[in-house]
Amino acid sequence: MSDLVKVESPLQHADFAALSALTTEGGVVLREDALLGHVNLRGNAQDPEFVAGVAKALGLALPLAPCSSAQNDDTTIMWLSPDEWIILVEGGKEEATEASLRANLTGHFAVSDISGGQTILELSGDDCIKVLQKSTGYDVHLDNFPIGKVVGTTFAKSSAHIRRTGEQSFQLVIRRSFSDYIWLWLQQSSKEYGLRIAL
């Protein structure tokens, strides 16, 4: 039955595969990290059993410091608020991740699979910081925004969780309903630097 369901990224219509063939030049590189598993986790960070349960389920310690993240080969956890995190796993593994969290946690917590509700864009390239500076009021200078930091902030007229993955690379976690708007915004704002689509 499930074979009949075709999962599509909210940016399917943009046809990144065709666009990526158009140019290999450009100061801004955009890549969609489509169809990952997104699991939202809520719980009490002050409860040692909760923290230990998550570490056991995911094999990765929960980032407890504000605006921090943790990553290993197959899982990324981003801090969203003192009692809320988003866990990113390979597409298709979200169900197993959810089940493993449920098996290892007790008491008051919430796990929800929100994979269909958002998508991830990766911005990189020499001029990606300039594009971000146009798009958000947050200070993206390396001193203020070190690698691994996650901030929830405004992005154009929408909002995004922005995570710095390298000196010149960022992940944007955006809502699927705003993805087309942000795609149009990024095309426009990176026009002067040249936009290249990566796969």
Partner: peptide
């Protein structure tokens, strides 16, 4: 006080 840093009023 939760993010522990200054942010713009927009947020």
């Amino acid at each position: 006080p939760y993010c522990e840093e200054f942010r713009e009023e927009d947020e």
